[in-house]
């Protein structure tokens, strides 16, 4: 692993975790697993940056893809056959966060996450990438692997819908 790449990964690590958290619907345990698997892909050279896009957008694309893989695995585990096989093999585990973990989550952040969860996935993704990760719409399009026009549409609709969802909760602008 090149030193320069390792440095970039370390710099991006907190935001990468935030992105993994978003891709995993706010589940910390799954987000950690996804991020760790993404790092493993990099270490084992199963994912390599070819320089066609910026390192950040490429890395976020890898995390997004890894989260989707993890989601498919989770769906399998939650299926009846999967549960049966896991019980037989004795490796069953509850993917849901514990109640204690839920209490730890900040209420306002949890409210934002709840509202984002009500948006279509693409709208929530583009809003997270633009407002949380401070990416441009072009960069968000690269991460999401869709056209800039599509991203712009998701962005505008997502913003309007998110504001509507946040209003009933008596949202007050936090002190920055």
């Amino acid at each position: 692993m090149e030193r320069a790449i390792a440095d970039q990964l370390e710099t991006l690590h907190p935001d990468a975790f935030g992105w993994a958290l978003h891709c995993c619907a706010g589940e910390h345990g799954r987000a950690e697993d996804v991020l760790q698997n993404a790092y493993l892909k990099l270490a084992q050279q199963r994912a390599q940056h070819d320089g066609r896009s910026s390192f950040k957008t490429w890395w976020f694309g890898v995390i997004r893809f890894t989260a989707h893989e993890e989601f498919r695995r989770l769906r399998y585990r939650e299926s009846l056959l999967g549960k049966l096989l896991l019980q037989l093999s004795g490796t069953a585990q509850d993917p849901r966060p514990s109640p204690a973990r839920k209490l730890e989550l900040d209420e306002r952040a949890a409210e934002l996450r709840r509202c984002l969860a009500q948006l279509p996935a693409r709208q929530a993704e583009v809003l997270h990438l633009v407002f949380y990760q401070d990416l441009t719409l072009n960069e968000a399009a690269e991460v999401m692997r869709v056209s800039i026009g599509s991203v712009r549409q998701h962005y505008e609709r997502g913003k309007a819908r998110l504001r509507t969802l946040l209003q009933p909760a008596d949202f007050h602008e936090p002190e920055v």
Binding site: G18, D106, R113, F131, Y132, R163, P174
Partner: peptide, 10 residues
């Protein structure tokens, strides 16, 4: 407004 709430979550 959205930037602020996302920054808080971040």
């Amino acid at each position: 407004d959205l930037l602020a709430i996302f920054a808080h979550a971040r």
